[in-house]
Simulated assay, not measured.
Amino acid sequence: MNIRTTLIAVPLLLIGTTAFAADNKIAPMIESVDVTHNGETVTVTRGHDGNATLPDIFQKTDRGCPPFCVQPIQAVPGVDTVGELEVLDYLHRIHQGDESIMVIDSRTPDWVMRGTIPGSMNIPWTKINTDTAGTFETPGEADTFVHILADEFGANQNPQTGAWTFEEAKTLVLFCNGIWCPQSTTNINTLVEYGYPVYKLKWYRGGMQDWASVGLTTVKP
C-alpha cells in the first residue's frame, strides 16, 4: 500500500473550544492511498473539514424492512467480511497492476451517480439478480449473467455441459449502500449458488454509508 506520512510537527487548528489536527490520516501509518479510477490515478484521503456531515441520502434512519433489513455480519459462510482498510488494500493492489481482483459497486446507476468508491466498477445487482431469488426470467437476462461471469469475472463455462469452473476467476470485493442494503449480499448468494468459490468473494458490509461516515474520498461518474 502506498503510505504517505507527515515528518514534521503540524499545529492544531482551533475552532471554538475544539481542537482539530491539521493532519487527518486514514490510519496512524496511512495518510493516503493511490487507486485507479477510469484510467486515472485518484488519491484517497480523509476530509479535513471539522464541520463535515454525512450526505443527506445517508442521514435517513427509518428504512422499511423488507427490503432494507439489517444484514448479518457474514453474508455467506466462508465469505470474508472486510472493512475500509482491506478495501483500500485491494484497490491499491489493482492500481499496481493486479488484475486478479475487482471491487464491485453492486448498486443501481442512480445511486452510483451520487458518488462511489474510487477504483470500483459498477455492476448493478440487477445484472446478476432480476429478483430476490436470483432467477432469470428471459434469455436476455441469462445471457447478461453469462457475459459477466465469463468476460468480467474470468470464469469458464464448459460448452458441452454448461458447467462453470472458477480456477481463473477473479477475487471479487462487493459492496452496496451499507448494513441496511441487501443488494451485494444477494449477489454473493447467487454467485455461491453458481459455484463461485467463497474464498474468492469478499464483502464490504459497511458500504457507501460507512465509507462516507469516515470522510474517505468519493468520486462521481
Rank of each mutant, 00 (worst) to 15 (best):
V103I: 08
T190M: 04
Q209K: 15
V198A: 07
W111D: 10
T185I: 04
G206E: 02
V192G: 04
N189L: 11
L91T: 01
P67R: 00
P182H: 04
G140T: 09
S106I: 02
E168N: 14
A150I: 02
D62W: 06
I123T: 12
D210C: 04
D131C: 12
V35C: 06
I117P: 05
D151Y: 06
L91C: 00
Q209C: 02
G50E: 08
L7D: 04
P197V: 02
R93G: 08
N177I: 00
T185K: 06
T186G: 12
D80K: 14
P28H: 10
E141D: 06
N129V: 12
P124M: 14
L172F: 10
I179L: 09
R93K: 15
K127T: 09
A212T: 15
K200W: 13
F153L: 05
H48L: 07
L85R: 11
D131T: 11
M121D: 14
P77E: 02
V10W: 12
C181W: 04
V42F: 09
L85V: 12
G178A: 08
L88E: 01
V44D: 06
A212W: 03
T218H: 02
L7F: 05
Q183N: 13
A155V: 03
P159S: 05
T190P: 01
K170R: 13
T45G: 06
R93T: 11
F68R: 10
L13F: 01
R63P: 00
H92C: 01
T126V: 14
I73R: 07
P182D: 05
A169T: 03
P11H: 09
F145N: 02
P109L: 11
V79M: 04
V33E: 01
G215A: 08
R46A: 08
P159M: 07
I188P: 02
V82G: 00
N129L: 14
G39P: 07
G134V: 08
P11K: 09
E193W: 13
T108M: 15
E84L: 05
I3M: 14
E141K: 15
A142D: 11
P66D: 04
I128H: 07
V35Y: 04
S32G: 07
T126M: 14
T144L: 12
